[in-house]
Design a protein around this nucleic acid. Structure first.
Lengths: 193, 193
DNA sequence: CTGGGATGTAAGCAGCGTCAACATGAGGGG
DNA sequence: CCCCTCATGTTGACGCTGCTTACATCCCAG
């Protein structure tokens, strides 16, 4: 990978743009992610990114794809193969904390309809879906796997979004993990009358 | 309510702006909700709304508040006081279908941090939270009410968001309700090993 | 060595949020 | 009844944005 080919041709502007976009998300939040700001940070002219991204949405989609991979890595780090409710709860905590640690990125990942034309993006989301499905298959071998996987992903994702949007209080980060854990266990243990 | 006071002073521009904003959301989607477009639709100059809304976010917050009220009305219409898992599932279906029927409004309601300075908005979200809490208290009298209410809201909200973002297929509206119903029941009936 | 295609630049358009200065007229105090 | 005040609406402007078109550069294949 050429460090800097010359003054005119950049060398690897596409990857540089994605990296610059992720930095902007961390620093200035989701609303300030503009193609022009990315170009400035990459040190190129305002329209140079258009050679690599058809439009603003395409750049966002590329950033989201990276985000899915990093989320999947966080989940695998929390527990590679959860197979008990407790381990499932650990993965849920990791999911929610990813959202709270990188809120702007999370919004980019889930804040708009999935671009079904971007094969890489679709594959990256499918990986997360498969991870959840595998958990459910191991933890609850007797049940309808598809319905339960849908429910579990919904539960975990919902908890993340509600915290992120302030519908559930996330001002004290230390209180979030126990709440997520309790919510997961409470729902799994709900006694029908 | 004065239909049209005169050519210069509008009469009730604040309410007209909110109504225009809701119409724009339905017609053109969430990204085209600009103060200037609202002003055009209201038939006033581009900066007139600033007499009633401090900035773009304030307008959005007002629209979201109306959205919360309408969502609460939809839930109450689905079932005023659910007290069984089946009735809970009906409310869940209503929640998800609200999101799918009015996606742009739903994104405005949940796509950004809650403006905690807007008392009306906070009250409107609290009403939904209370509705869920009351369901849980009736349906599962023996359990930790706070944890379970958190979990149920998270589950339902997560199912709505995942459908909205295309992570769960919502192209066939008729398939959504059974899936939501099945997911809710599957999670409530999950057998621990 | 030379020409073509990939990559980056320059200039410009329309739309956006926002501010400051100005115009209008509705409603109350004299 | 009239006039003054102030809330409300307008005008014009600034810098930002996404995006297009036309042009410049330079790597690489033949």
């Amino acid at each position: 990978m050429p460090e800097q080919r010359n003054a005119y041709h950049h060398g690897d502007l596409a990857a540089t743009c994605v990296r610059a976009a992720m930095e902007l998300l961390e620093e200035d939040g989701h609303s300030s992610l503009s193609l022009r700001a990315v170009a400035r940070r990459a040190g190129v002219s305002p329209t140079a990114p258009y050679r690599h991204f058809a439009n603003h949405d395409a750049l966002v989609s590329a950033v989201a794809t990276v985000g899915y991979r990093e989320l999947a890595a966080d989940l695998a780090a929390a527990h590679p193969t959860p197979s008990t409710p407790d381990e499932l709860a650990s993965a849920a905590v990791a999911y929610v904390q990813f959202a709270l640690r990188r809120p702007a990125l999370f919004r980019v990942m889930f804040g708009e309809p999935c671009d079904t034309d971007d094969a890489e993006r679709v594959a990256a989301t499918a990986a997360i879906s498969d991870y959840v499905g595998a958990i459910v298959g191991r933890t609850f071998p007797g049940s309808d796997p598809e319905a339960l996987a849908t429910a579990v992903w919904g539960l975990v994702h919902g908890l993340a979004v509600l915290h992120l949007d302030g519908k559930l209080d996330a001002t004290d980060p230390a209180a979030v993990a126990p709440r997520v854990r309790a919510a997961v266990h409470a729902l799994l243990a709900a006694e029908l009358p």
